[in-house]
Every structure is written in structure tokens, then in C-alpha cells.
Design a protein around this nucleic acid. Structure first.
Lengths: 288, 288
DNA sequence: TATAATAATGACCAATGAGTCATTTGTCAA
DNA sequence: TTGACAAATGACTCATTGGTCATTATTATA
């Protein structure tokens, strides 16, 4: 529908200048030269418009980057190409980038936050695949940490890139970041973020951790472990997660079994939180 | 005044959970157990409260970090200490950090945005001093670029650190980031952000560029240059900036003189923008 | 041209929340 | 006890803005 497109384009302009919250529907429709009612013929609500914008642009940006990562043959160039595509895409969609550079999550509704999280994870996956393609086994212990390094660099330089009004040399920027990334990828000895930490982080950001998610991580961990008390404990705990069957005291004991094993600390943390359910400290419960 | 403190503490809690915009004054006063009027006895407005919060915490955080940078004798350890202090400070003021992790500038008023910019610049200066202390002349060409690298890492890992609910090993994190920073500081061959770009960026973010600011940068540049047409042109332009005296055509000519000199491109850009005043494209002028 | 169907309008409604101020409550010196 | 002053209250105002819907304009069809 052409009307939707018009609204999206004009709204994007206004959002980029004033921010989303500071732009009333009335102003958007005035700027479009249509009535307020017409807006609600195209979108059910303001939120729906915002979501449409996010989807529209994120899909484009992400697929641009994904295509590059999947189709660059020369692995020497891949890092450079990745950054180049990324910044080119940001440049093409500068208004959108500008909005979501500053307007992070914050007081949006749940659906919006989930949308952003969804695309953030997609980005993580693409970056991970990039790293694995280029460095393979050499970064087994550092690859999850590397994701955050790359995202940090991207963010910092994107902000500069997007908010800067002067001319920018994308190729130089990409080359510079490729060099930095490569330096860190090939020389890091003490990574900070492990696979486990990343999982804990992802889970703890989910308001609701489903049985299935927890179980999936448990099964993965079970596979990694050799036969041992820890492995047995995990298997039992997994059964308990899927279908509550054990006495709480037994669960506590099983948790104790695993929480000192160096590779199980994260899982132990996730599980103890999960079983605690609402018994733990819940900061938001202080306010009706 | 004790009432102010109470309000600030309680407001911070609510802001951290719900966001600033989503927290009405009424809720703050309810939570404090005082009346709405009492709030306005302590603060002139909601914005004044927010500014008070920013000042209170930023001054603490910044001075913590600044103290470390100024007083760590062992330059080998300085990088580690810097990150350690930073994250420790974030940890101490976790609620504040949480708010300003997500709630960046956006639809705040000008005073707020300037506040944040002010502290951002202070941070830049501290980081620059840190870099200079440790690496001295070895990073002459890369130090401004390094600032953005460090800020990028700080940001990315801070977000992880602040939003993550699991236990975090600050020392490991600091060590990891110190290693990364060191790797980049000692091996970067192609920096992206030059001193000049940084200046352009800073200026272009100022809505109003004062004569004095422009002149200061000009004088600095003039000092760096050897005797040449470029230098003479800059001297004349500087006089013109301080007190309009030249014909526009002459100014244009002087600008042409410098804009091809590799070290003057940035200055040329700043100046041409400055002289253009409101004649340029001003995106916000489209809307009444 | 008449009629039905669809699109578009903008006055209106309801909710929100920042900030005000007439009134009440509390304190303390005379 | 009284009266003067300060502190605190919360009902109220007022501007804003998301969303609705009866009405009007436009187009397609017979």
C-alpha cells in the first residue's frame, strides 16, 4: 500500500530529528498532507508504525550484511567487507540508524523491546559466523568474547559515523576496524565472555525462561561432559525441568553437585534462578 | 537538604526499573511517602531532578576514574587500574549506570543533552591523558582513534556488565580489556579518527559554534604549519572570524587556498560551514 | 444519473501527567 | 494560649496526544 510507505518515510524523517516520543501522530499526518484518521487506516497504532519501521530497515540492513558474510569468497577480505557493508548500509539508511543509535529500547512496550532483541541476536549470529569462517578453531575460546569486541567497535565508530556531519571515508574506516578486529582475534589470551556467560546473559534478559530453552542448554552441556557425578546430576535435573518430579531437597543437592565444577557454574546459576522462581529477590515487587 | 536526597534515591530506583519518562512524579512522591507539592518544594521541575541525578553520579564516577589515572604510579598497571576503577564505579552506582546505559539523550531538553556531552568530553580527556601517559609519543597518530576504541570496548562490556544478573569478575574483565587496548595501542597502523576529525565532530555537535572556539582551533593549526600560503590564509581567516573584515569572495579564495592541503581539510570544512551560516541545507527547516 | 461501496476527514473523547496554589498542619517564641 | 511563620498537602488546571467515529468526499458500478 502506497499510503503506508508515505507515512513511514515522513515519520522516519521526523523521528530522526525529534525522536519518536516527541513526534505526535498529528505532526506526521500534517507533514504527509493527510488526516489523522487516514493514519489509523494504515496503521492500527503508533507502535505498529514503529514496529513496521524497525522491521523494514532491520531486515534490509541485516540481510545486506548477511549476504556479504555468506558470499565473500576471499576470507582475507571478509572482515573488511563486513565492516564496509555494515557502514554502507548504515549510510544508506542514515535516518533509521540515527533514530536507533540514540533511541535504545527504554520506555517502549514489550513487543518493541523483543523486536530489537531479536535483531540483536541475529546480528550476534552473523558476527559469530563471520568469526568462525575467518579464524575457525583458533578462536574457540575467544569467539564469544570477540562478538562483544566487534559490537563495541561497531557501535562506537557508528555513532561517530552517523552523527558526524563531515565527509567520511568508509573504506578507511572499514580497513581500520578490520585491522583492530584482526589484532584482537589473533592475539587475545584472556577473553572475558565465555559461551556460558553469554547464555546466562541471554536467558536473564528473557522475562520468561521456558522449560525448553533451559533444557536445550542442559542437553548441550550434558553432551560436552564425560561420565561423572556432574553429568548424572545434569541428566536428572533436565528431567526435573521438563517434568517436575523431584523433591526440592534433592534438587538442591543436585545443584550442589554441579556448582563447583568449573564448566557448570553458569548452568548452576541459571538453574538455581529458575527453580527459585519468584522466591528470590524481585526488585520490581516492591511497588504494587 | 535531606528531602532532596530521599527523592533522588527513590527516583533513581524507579527510573532504573521503568525508565525516566515512564515514571510520573506522583509515583516518586508516593514511593517516598510525601506529597506531590513537597516534591516541587525540593525541585523546581522533573528536569531539575534528572540533572541533579546526573551531576551527583557523574561527578562521583568521573572523579573516581580521574583520581586513578592521575595517581597510579606503575604505568604497566595503569590500563588495568583504569578499567577496574571504571567498572567498580559502575557497579557501585549500578542503578544510575543502568538508566544511562539505555536512556541516552533522545527527547530530553537541551540542558540535559549538554550535561551529558560535557561529561562525555571529560571522559574523552581522561582517556586521552591515560593514553598519553602510557604510550607517549608512540601513539601520536593514533591516540584520538584510540579514544573511540576504548570507549567502544567500555560501552559494549559495560552493557553486558550492568545488564547481566549473574556474578561478574571485574578483575578478569579489566585484564581482558587492558590486553585488548594494549594490543590495539601498540599495533594499529591505520587509525581512522584523526585529531582534526575529532574537532570537526565536536564542533558539528555544537548547535552554535562560537567565534572563540573556531579561532582557538585555527590558532592551533597556524602554529603547526610552516610558513606557506596556507599559513598566511589561515591567519587572515582567523582575523576575519574574530572580526568580519573581508569580502566574501576573498574568504572563498582563502578557503580554496587551504582546502587541498592535507592537514587543512578539516579546518576548511569547519570554516566553510561556519561562513555558510544558515545558507546551507538545514534539514529541520522543512518543518515550521 | 442513481446507488452502493470505499476512502478520507477532523472534531471529539479520554487519559495522562507536569506543575500550581488555596488550604491545612506543624512549630515555636512570646 | 495565641499568633505568626514555615512546611506540607493534594485537588485542581491545563496542555498534550493517542485513538475513535459520525460525517463527508470520491470512485466504481449498474
Amino acid at each position: 500500500m502506497i499510503k503506508k510507505q508515505l507515512i513511514m518515510e515522513k515519520a522516519l524523517e521526523l523521528f530522526a530529528i525529534q525522536g519518536i516520543e516527541a513526534t505526535p501522530i498529528q505532526q506526521i499526518t500534517d507533514y504527509c498532507g493527510i488526516s489523522k484518521g487516514a493514519f489509523y487506516l494504515a496503521f492500527k497504532s503508533k507502535d505498529e508504525l514503529i514496529i513496521a519501521l524497525i522491521d523494514h530497515f532491520m531486515i534490509q540492513i541485516i540481510s545486506d550484511i548477511d549476504y556479504t558474510v555468506k558470499n565473500t569468497q576471499n576470507k582475507q577480505e571478509l572482515l573488511f567487507s563486513f565492516f564496509q557493508t555494515t557502514f554502507q548500509s548504515f549510510h544508506t539508511h542514515a535516518n533509521f540508524a540515527k533514530i536507533f543509535m540514540k533511541e535504545q529500547s527504554h520506555s517502549f512496550n514489550k513487543e518493541l523491546i523483543n523486536k530489537m532483541r531479536h535483531y540483536d541476536r541475529l546480528m550476534d549470529e552473523i558476527i559469530l559466523s563471520l568469526i568462525e569462517q575467518i579464524y575457525g578453531d583458533r578462536v574457540i575460546d575467544t569467539k564469544y568474547d570477540l562478538i562483544y569486541t566487534i559490537k563495541g567497535l561497531m557501535n562506537s565508530y557508528s555513532a561517530f559515523f552517523i552523527l558526524n556531519k563531515g565527509p567520511i571515508d568508509i573504506d578507511l574506516l572499514s580497513q581500520s576496524l578490520a585491522e583492530k578486529t584482526n589484532l584482537i582475534a589473533t592475539n587475545t589470551t584472556t577473553p572475558f565472555i565465555s559461551k556460558e556467560m553469554m547464555e546466562i546473559f541471554k536467558l536473564s534478559n528473557n522475562d520468561e525462561n521456558s522449560k525448553e530453552q533451559i533444557s536445550e542448554i542442559l542437553l548441550q552441556k550434558i553432551e560436552e561432559l564425560d561420565e561423572s557425578t556432574e553429568k548424572e546430576s545434569l541428566i536428572l535435573l533436565n528431567q526435573h525441568v521438563l517434568e517436575t518430579s523431584l523433591h526440592p531437597a534433592i534438587v538442591q543437592g543436585l545443584l550442589k553437585n554441579i556448582q563447583n565444577h568449573p564448566h557448570c557454574k553458569g548452568i548452576a546459576y541459571i538453574l538455581s534462578n529458575y527453580f527459585m522462581q519468584d522466591g528470590g529477590i524481585n526488585v520490581s515487587s516492591c511497588f504494587s
